[in-house]
């Protein structure tokens, strides 16, 4: 890993990973059937796993650019899907 890439990856892991953990958990909560509080709880419980997987992804891929894309693209996709589901009323 070259030296300039490390700070960039740390940011991608900390912030990008956090964003992905949130949007992934919100999508999960929006998509799950059943009561809202339960679905949100499942999302909260899963969020730390998503975060961990995202950080491992960021540090395992070969370039910092791929690291950023790998957290931001799924982050946006999850966020957009969650938004669509939530607009459609309770799923």
């Amino acid at each position: 890993m070259n030296k300039l890439a490390i700070p960039s990856r740390i940011l991608a892991a900390a912030l990008g990973g956090y964003a992905l953990a949130n949007s992934g958990a919100i999508l999960l909560a929006a998509a799950l059937p059943g009561g809202q509080a339960e679905a949100v709880t499942w999302g909260l419980l899963a969020s730390f796993l998503i975060y961990t997987a995202a950080v491992m992804w960021v540090f395992s891929v070969r370039s910092a650019l791929r690291a950023w894309l790998g957290v931001l693209v799924p982050g946006f996709v999850c966020g957009a899907l969650a938004w669509i589901l939530m607009q459609g009323g309770t799923p």
Partner: peptide
């Protein structure tokens, strides 16, 4: 893992805010 779960609404407040 359970240590994080104790304060999950503190660490991940946006997941709750998105719905509540």
């Amino acid at each position: 893992y359970s240590g994080l779960v104790f304060l999950m609404t503190v660490y991940m407040p946006m997941i709750v805010s998105a719905f509540y």
